[in-house]
Computed example of a mutant assay.
Amino acid sequence: MSATEGATEGAARAGEAEVEQGAPVPAPAPASPLWTVAGLVVVFGLAALVGVLTDAVPAATEGTGFGRVAKSIEYPVYAIALGFAGNAVLSLTGVRQRMAAAFRTEFFIKIGLVLLGATINFAVVARAAGPAVLQAVLLITIVFLFTWWFAGLLGLDDKLRALLASALSICGFSAAVAAAGAVEAKKEQLAYTATLVIVFAVPSIFLLPWLADLMGLSPAVTGAWIGGNIDTTAAVTAAGAVAGEQPLQIASIVKVTQNALLGVVAVLLTLYFAVKVAPAGDPAGKAPRFGDRRSLLMLWERFPKFVLGFLLASVVATVLAESLPAAVLEPRLDAAKEIQVWALTLAFVSIGLEFNARSIKESGWKPILVFAVATVVNLVVGLALASVLFRDFSF
């Protein structure tokens, strides 16, 4: 287990020990291998049901008013919803804590993110037009800093600020997960952020193509706007498909460029939190200065090691794409993609199962306001950048 995993799980155990003011601290439920196996059966069973629902709901509702919406609902929606439902049932029966050892959110997420790197070919990014790269860098920087500032203005916890800013400015679920590993955020904060991503991303699939058509935007500007503003890659693909083939191409390039910057943001967050927390965390008042051996060791301990796996997988995929025939490589990448989806499905189910409802009460309405305001800023800045950078783009 890495230092990051240990610290995160330690924070989780500390969070589980928290109770309402005045309430006695409950004794921890005894864990046993049988309960852990039972918990794994629940996690994998719910994940399998997610796959069934993802395919069955659109087919069953085809031709109805809900059919178009059902096609755009991503697997994390079902995974988190089923995790919440399982949480409620297991809590009512009093066995959720006994099964808690099976709800390995961090483990499943890190597998999924490393495999996600294999789907991002840096050669594609390198060949992408300069405007796509420039828009991604500028939009991530502006939206991240605004969200961070506005959340701080409302007094939100730094870790939650990091999750909200990362999810809004980069790529939704995956960015929030990477940020959570970097800053050692609580699982409840990650679940809350993931829920906000879902709530805001699904309507955007239809809203942005409609607004682009209403404003008479060109296909390239439309695609750049969609790719830069909708949080999740799957929702970007869906919205691009609604807008047309050419907008879909540009939207995909911009979103892939943003995804490629995920590791960079995770590293910067790790650096910021390591330097910021170091003085307060040194009981002797002798916190290491940045750049000396102690600070570098602390930075390495807090660095999310899965980011290296993410970057390495992307590099390997890029090299293989240039050296192997597509007929040989694509089946293997498809297999990696299927495992990635399974791992992230297990992770999001586990998040729902581990979720503590007190986090919503503690966070209140402020994170929702931050997400809403920052989304509007993202839309306005994204449209301005897309209009300037892609106005002369031709296919």
Rank of each mutant, 00 (worst) to 15 (best):
Q246G: 01
Q246D: 05
Q246P: 03
P247M: 05
L248Y: 14
Q249T: 12
Q249F: 09
I250A: 01
A251L: 09
A251P: 06
A251R: 12
S252K: 14
S252R: 13
S252I: 14
S252G: 12
V254Y: 05
V254P: 07
V256Q: 00
V256A: 00
V256P: 00
T257C: 04
T257A: 04
T257Q: 10
Q258I: 11
Q258G: 10
Q258K: 10
N259F: 12
A260W: 14
A260C: 11
A260N: 15
L261C: 00
L261D: 00
L261Q: 04
L262F: 10
V264L: 10
V264H: 05
V265L: 11
V265W: 13
V265C: 01
V267P: 13
V267Q: 02
V267E: 01
V267T: 13
L269Q: 11
T270V: 03
T270F: 02
T270A: 02
Y272V: 07
F273C: 06
F273H: 07
K276V: 02
K276E: 01
V277A: 01
V277C: 05
P279C: 01
P279V: 05
P279T: 05
P279Q: 02
A280C: 03
A280T: 05
G281T: 09
G281Y: 06
D282L: 08
D282V: 09
D282E: 06
P283W: 03
P283M: 00
P283K: 03
P283L: 04
A284I: 14
A284R: 11
G285E: 03
A287G: 08
A287W: 01
P288V: 10
R289Y: 04
R289I: 01
F290Y: 05
F290P: 00
F290D: 00
F290I: 01
G291C: 07
D292P: 04
R293K: 09
S295D: 13
L296V: 14
L296H: 05
L297K: 03
L297W: 13
L297P: 14
M298Y: 10
L299C: 06
W300A: 13
W300C: 08
E301I: 09
R302C: 05
R302P: 03
R302I: 04
R302Q: 07
F303V: 06
F303L: 13
P304W: 10
P304K: 09
K305E: 00
K305R: 11
K305S: 05
V307A: 14
V307S: 14
V307K: 12
V307H: 10
L308R: 07
L308N: 06
L308M: 11
L308G: 07
G309S: 15
G309Q: 15
F310D: 08
F310L: 15
F310W: 10
L311I: 15
L312K: 01
A313H: 04
A313C: 14
S314Q: 11
S314E: 06
S314A: 09
S314R: 12
V315L: 14
V316R: 15
A317T: 15
T318M: 12
T318Y: 11
T318F: 08
V319N: 12
L320Q: 11
S323R: 13
S323Y: 14
S323A: 14
L324C: 13
P325Q: 07
P325E: 04
A326R: 06
A327K: 10
A327C: 08
